[in-house]
Nucleic acid binder design. Structure first.
Lengths: 206, 206, 206, 206
DNA sequence: TATGAATGAGTATTCATTCAT
DNA sequence: GATGAATGAATACTCATTCAT
């Protein structure tokens, strides 16, 4: 096995383990066991444990940037509708993620590795919120407010994701911004984004 | 300070630290320094480090369940429109999250505490994807395909969140389900969910 | 409950626990739980954990000394045979030990408190040696060398105890004595002590 | 130093310390200091502190079982007298114990490691009981009831050991047996076991 | 006297990293 | 390059003891 292959093999094993157990719950021992190499060998290819994850994340980032460039190049905007373009973008993104689920699991902070005890509670919470949204959608369908052909599971996931992300974005990461966030108008904007795609238009809407 | 207060104080300090540095980068020493208590005191209130996080997460979950119950009770479905109901739900959720940003940061897996090196790369990636979507939206606006009054930042965040979450949901967490996911139809469903709320309807769409 | 009673109660609980789990595997918490008193109360009656065991052992020693004095006084050597005197001594000793099994368990170093894992191995070893001696005795009975009416279990225990104790006494505790121990003559003396009480005399013994 | 040697070295140092100070008064730091190795090295060879003692005890047990097998094989029962056989067994046992005094000290529950304070009281008690028995033997000799050539120290130790062990055996370890122990007959059996080897036969016994 | 919250020195254990072979 | 034994700083956790109420 030549150096490059060995390096790839270590990355592959580390990625698998990081994605499954999380970074902090994966030990160097686990990686060398999985890769069937000696402890010292790993340190010939990577400076330290951090270096492995940094390499994985950088690789992921670079592939992503490259994939965008390729996708954009192969696409002639003049020949497709806006909808087709949107569809294309979404599809390419999903394909890119599906192509390497493990690294996505790491990079999208989905499997950053809490022990099972913690994960269980978080899973319970997420299930609860998805169910709650699903119930609301079903109610809307029953009351003839929401499209009957809606994929409930998918919509609930999008909603939950949007609320999580926006909470994080507006309350945590941009907490230093000048203007305070107005929850009321934020809610309105979210609602307005989703309603047309989900709700059945009413002739005389209240 | 009575036992209940002390317990709360420890939880508060731990939450702050977990949310800032992450669970694995927070040491017991950090917590007791922050709380200005002795090492042993912490272990009179919590079995171990895990127990602290579990308590925080359980508390969060329970508060969430309780808040839903309260919100549902105070709301008379007959007297409001579907849109008002939707708006109410979204607003209450955002308020709940904003009310305790730290725990959300932990529970929503946003601040699970990676060291700065990793965080930097992930942030770079997220910024990239948000920018990409924003650029697409701006292009759509320029081409008169997308509503001019759209909150670009918010929409880009929702899109990104949806794509992350759905990738995780369909490729990772439900990887055991019977039917394979068809990326094409999944993309279509996503596109259909968003288009009506974002795009300007065309009489004769290209 | 008056102070003396409380003190006795603590000693009683501690003795029970020390005897069962051993000194090092019994915590102050265990004692106060068992005695149903507060942590601080214990320290009003005893200086520290050591003090409790020292008190128990000293009490035991003093009772023993006293019991000997009483037994000796009540016994008129002129009116009994040597055998009766021997029998009396043995009986009184056994009665004294049986009267407070827990403290004996501690003081006779039988239950000085190893965790179960260790105890299991030691028990296995002791059972093995007792069985081995028992088998030898049975063989002797079969070959008509040993009295048929012998209590095998009791004899095997005496033998094992003698060998353990003498090993300790001659090899460990008196290892500083001038003359080296001659194993051959030591064995002969042991054998000579036991043979007459166990073996069947032969007309022409080899 | 190869792995096996290192392992042996650690065991040797631990055995020495356990035997001298006792298990609970020996720290990992003491062992690594004694073995002149790093903290982590110890944990490469043993799972934890318990594991070291378990290994020592298991080794001891296995050596013992093996030694019995060897001794039995090398001995032709047909060519020796019962007394010779008995002598052989006793001698082999003593030799085995003397061969590794430290582990015996641990396994025979003689040196399970109490702090000096406790040990002092127990020693006082044991000395007292040995002296008492010795005095009785001397009295018997003076009164011409007991053999003049008796090794008083050895006999007193055997007696004491027998009484300790039997108390433990009948009052503690077999406390679950059906029939209650009759102290009187137990005493008689003990007396009968010892008298022939110790006492001078009388034509007309008092 | 009784209480039990608070203390912190002490202890076992982990695990990334090094380096001689 | 590859190996894996050795390292030791870092860390979680324990538990006898104190002391304000």
């Amino acid at each position: 096995m030549n150096p490059d292959e060995r390096r790839e093999q270590i990355l592959k094993c580390a990625k698998k383990l990081f994605s499954t157990r999380g970074y902090y719950n994966t030990q160097i021992s686990d990686i060398i066991d999985e890769a069937k190499i000696a402890r010292g060998t790993l340190y010939q290819y990577f400076e330290n444990k951090d270096d492995i994850l940094v390499t994985l994340l950088e690789d992921f980032y670079n592939k992503w940037v490259k994939s965008i460039a390729v996708n954009s190049k192969n696409f002639n905007l003049d020949q497709v509708s806006a909808k087709q373009y949107f569809h294309h973008r979404v599809k390419e993104t999903l394909l890119f993620f599906r192509n390497d689920i493990e690294i996505c699991n790491i990079a999208l902070r989905m499997g950053m590795g809490l022990s099972d005890v913690f994960q269980a509670i978080i899973d319970k919470f997420e299930k609860k919120i998805i169910n709650l949204i699903s119930d609301d959608i079903r109610l809307g369908i029953k009351l003839n407010n929401i499209r009957k052909d809606l994929n409930i599971e998918l919509t609930a996931n999008i909603m939950a994701a949007a609320l999580f992300r926006l909470s994080y974005f507006y309350f945590v990461s941009s907490s230093g911004r000048k203007s305070k966030i107005d929850i009321d108008s934020l809610s309105s904007e979210i609602v307005d984004t989703f309603i047309p795609g989900i709700f059945i238009p009413k002739s005389q809407g209240k």
